[in-house]
Simulated assay, not measured.
Amino acid sequence: MPSPLSPGRIAEVRAAIVAVAEHQAVALGLERVSMHGIARALGWSATALYRYFDNKDAILAAARAAAANRLSSRLEAALAGPGDIWARSRAVGQAYIAFARAEPDAYKLLFALSQPASDDYPDLAAATARARANLTRYVERLVAEGGVEADADLLAHVFWAGLHGLVSLEMAGALTAESPAFEAIRHEMVARLLRGGRKLGDGG
């Protein structure tokens, strides 16, 4: 019978399993991820994985939760940074882009079309709610402190949709040498979205 593992060791092993699953989900597609494939990559038997997770969906849910929490940590640090609300809002956008570029597998997994239901996994539901709150909180501050007249939740989702689309274009290689620069597109997009609602400051 296997000896008991310390909580620290369990967390370490779970993180290793999640990292493999995250990579395989992007490289192979979610439907081709399997307990056997994850175990093989780790040099284990599939049976060993069941000491840490009930099934593949539980592993992928943990991977999504971990990715969402890492994204949230970046966004929260940006919003808590120096400067006025316009500077901090720009920092939030940069933090979002930096996460996608630094952790493309995690970013792609977060927005994969096929996903286990987050309601079945409390940690994932909490991480998803935290990330969504962070993607709207800075716009609420813009409305409250920056003189923007808008429905904060709606504007936040418009910003998110635009930025996600731009990041996805970059990841797909659709922004070529002939395309306008990434930051030029982003600045123009934000400026146009804010035009008419902005009373003061520079939100580009």
Rank of each mutant, 00 (worst) to 15 (best):
M1L: 07
M1W: 02
S3L: 14
P4F: 12
L5T: 09
L5D: 04
S6M: 13
P7T: 11
I10S: 10
A11R: 15
A11G: 00
V13T: 15
V18C: 09
A19I: 06
A19Q: 10
V20H: 04
E22W: 05
A25N: 08
G29E: 11
E31S: 12
E31I: 02
V33E: 04
H36K: 07
G37M: 08
A39I: 04
A41V: 08
L42K: 08
G43D: 11
S45D: 12
S45M: 06
A46N: 07
Y52E: 06
N55K: 02
D57H: 10
D57W: 12
A58C: 03
I59E: 08
L60C: 00
A61K: 02
A61M: 01
R64N: 03
N69E: 15
N69F: 01
R70P: 03
L71I: 08
S72N: 09
A77S: 15
A78M: 11
L79D: 02
L79H: 04
A80R: 14
I85A: 05
I85W: 05
I85K: 02
I85S: 03
A87Y: 01
A95D: 03
A95K: 02
A95N: 05
Y96G: 00
Y96K: 08
A100P: 11
R101E: 14
A102W: 04
E103N: 02
D105K: 04
A106Q: 06
A106S: 15
Y107R: 01
Y107T: 02
L109Q: 04
F111C: 07
F111D: 07
L113D: 12
S114G: 06
P116T: 07
A117N: 12
D120P: 00
D120Y: 04
P122Y: 05
A126K: 11
A129E: 13
A131D: 03
A133V: 00
L135M: 11
T136W: 00
T136K: 09
R137E: 14
V139L: 13
E140Y: 11
V143E: 00
G146M: 06
G146S: 01
G146T: 05
G147Y: 14
G147Q: 07
E149V: 12
D153F: 01
L154A: 13
V158I: 15
G162L: 05
G165Y: 05
G165F: 03
L166M: 09
M171T: 02
M171V: 01
G173F: 02
L175Y: 10
L175K: 05
A177M: 10
P180T: 06
F182A: 10
E183N: 15
V190M: 13
R192T: 13
R192N: 07
L193I: 12
L193K: 06
L200Q: 13
G203D: 13
G203E: 11
G204L: 05
